[in-house]
Design a protein around this nucleic acid. Structure first.
Lengths: 155, 155
DNA sequence: TCAAATCATCAGCTTCACTGATTGACAGGG
DNA sequence: CCCTGTCAATCAGTGAAGCTGATGATTTGA
């Protein structure tokens, strides 16, 4: 792998050796497909993320949701606005801290998630992962988790 | 690692099973670090990509560069403007097709690439990949290439 | 009680993708 | 040679989204 002397160093080859590009390319590709699949629902990939977080970890503040999804606090305002207008989540004051909202999934929100969104995104994932062997899929997720996890937390 | 039965299904866990999120998280993290490392040079990660493509595959039109890096044609105008002002690339008319420019790396551009940018980005990659075993690193690049490559080629 | 910090919000700024229109250049048919 | 269509680069306009800083309400700590 070291001999870069006589080989025609095409950009494709050099880019292919850069994990940075590979990651952004792969991420862009899968995100495009997911957005495409979600198009009919009027939701974005980001919105789906909010719903998933809420489904799993109950009512949360806007900031906390944004923190987990790497969405800015000021952007979250509009994101929740839209989801609330569609009746998928509700804003109510957190009783423990009345500065914050308590964002909660509604019944319709949960239903949409289970009956439509989860199957939809699962199908996209299956399609993309179909190129990989079963082993590679597990491998990939494990490696990515290590990469994205940053510093290992002492939980 | 497999026993997720009695574990409270946290959002973290569910997101951790979605390759889509893992990919975007990992890509964001490495991109942030690369941008950070490049900060002193006045260049962005995108700009580095342009230079790498030009270094490897000779003079190219703006559109062709943009196509390879997934950068929009109208955005490329400004990107090349900046690189040209810094003397790293030159615009000249393509003699075969005078509608298009022929963007070419300059001597200083090539020097910067070899002496500064390649070492810089290599260091970032090493830092990030340090969390992985040697095997996993090769594995990851191979798998990502399959994912990002789109249709599997019969090469 | 008073000051500092925090949450949601808003306004302003910036970047960037996308669209459409324009200009100059190419390519083909008449 | 002209006409039409296509394509590269450019520019203007729009919209999404991040970042900053300010504000009002509220909490927390001294």
């Amino acid at each position: 792998m070291g001999g870069n002397g006589h080989e025609p160093a095409t950009a494709a080859r050099r880019l292919a050796e850069s994990t940075g590009w590979l990651l952004t390319d792969a991420a862009r590709e899968i995100t495009l497909k997911l957005e495409e699949a979600l198009k009919g629902t009027g939701l974005r990939w980001r919105d789906y993320g909010v719903l998933v977080v809420l489904e799993a970890d109950g009512p949360l503040s806007q900031q906390e949701i944004g923190r987990r999804l790497a969405v800015d606090r000021s952007t979250m305002v509009h994101v929740i606005d839209v989801l609330e207008q569609q009746g998928l989540v509700v804003r109510s004051r957190d009783r423990a801290d009345r500065r914050a909202y308590s964002i909660e999934l509604t019944g319709p929100g949960r239903t949409l998630l289970v009956e439509v969104l989860h199957p939809l995104t699962a199908r996209v994932h299956s399609g993309v992962m179909a190129r990989l062997t079963h082993e590679d899929r597990a491998h990939l997720n494990r490696i990515l988790a290590q990469l994205a996890g940053g510093a290992p937390r002492p939980e």
